[in-house]
Simulated assay, not measured.
Amino acid sequence: MNIIDPSRPSATEDVWLKAAYDVLTESGVEAVKIMPLAKRLGLTRTSFYWHFKDRDALLEAMIRHWEDTNTGNLVTRCNAYAENIFEAIFNLFDCWLDDGLFDSRLDLAIRNWARNDPGLQTRLDQADARRKDAMMGMFQRFGFDAAEAEIRALTMIYTQIGYISMQVTESREERFARMPGYVEVFTGRKPADADIERFVARHRMSAP
């Protein structure tokens, strides 16, 4: 006979993480606390401990999610098959069009959090180094020397961080329309119509 434990939560670990994410991106890490999260979800404080040892464990889970999602997906897109540097850059640009690949709100929240958390700042520096290495490798695969690859990679990184930190507001269509121009700026070469058309077709949008 199965005995139902009334303290067992109906919410999953992902539900707690989503609530913590919402608070983190809205109000910062200081606002991520167990009791307010429980009230937000209509659950008991006790139910939290079915999934996490303590608040630090919840925060660590959010950091790991950021590392796996934002940095992990960015590196994967940089390493994806491409026939030329233009297709390689467009592969990376998938991250800027799909929040499932790269969550800009989470990236901003992590950067703000790291300002007052030396341990997280170290992990952020490591993540940025992984991103830079992946972008440099992408350029070097297509004949750019190391020095030029580094400058072009940094240009892309600083541009994206600028988008994030300035919280630039533009429609998906506006950003999409600028991307061929950004590819030309980042590579120093103009992409062919065929490269643009493949990217457009993948996202099922009209050509800019």
Rank of each mutant, 00 (worst) to 15 (best):
F93T: 11
Q121M: 15
R64N: 12
V23K: 12
D94A: 14
D107A: 07
G181D: 14
T169P: 06
W16D: 03
R64F: 02
A149I: 01
R152G: 05
I4Q: 00
N84V: 04
N91W: 06
K190N: 13
R64G: 03
A109L: 02
A147C: 10
R175F: 14
G137R: 08
L92N: 09
C95L: 04
T76M: 09
G72A: 09
I85F: 13
A147N: 14
G188A: 04
P36D: 02
K18M: 10
D107G: 05
S206W: 09
R131M: 14
R55I: 08
R123Q: 01
C78E: 01
F142E: 12
L24G: 05
S47K: 01
G28F: 03
E197I: 08
D107C: 07
A80N: 09
I85A: 14
E26R: 11
S7E: 14
V29F: 10
L74W: 13
F144Q: 06
I157H: 02
A19L: 00
K33E: 10
P180Q: 07
A207E: 14
A88S: 15
E67Q: 03
R152P: 03
N91F: 11
I3L: 11
M135R: 05
K53I: 11
Y81R: 13
E148R: 07
L41E: 01
I4E: 04
I63H: 04
K39W: 07
R175Q: 12
I89T: 02
D54R: 02
D54K: 01
W50A: 10
D56T: 01
V185T: 09
Y81W: 12
M1T: 13
F86N: 07
Y163K: 08
V29D: 00
F86C: 09
D107V: 11
R178P: 07
V200L: 02
I89N: 06
A38V: 00
E13S: 09
G42R: 00
G42C: 02
R77I: 11
D56W: 00
M1L: 08
L58N: 03
C95A: 15
Q160M: 10
D193N: 13
A31R: 15
L106P: 02
R55C: 12
V183R: 12
R45A: 10
Y21R: 04
F93L: 12
M138R: 08
R141S: 08
K18H: 08
E173F: 06
P180I: 11
T155R: 06
L41A: 06
E173Y: 11
Q140V: 09
Y182H: 12
F93A: 04
T44F: 03
E197M: 06
D117A: 05
W96P: 05
T76F: 03
S7D: 13
R172M: 06
G181I: 10
G137E: 08
D54W: 08
V15Q: 03
M166E: 14
W96H: 13
T12S: 15
N84H: 04
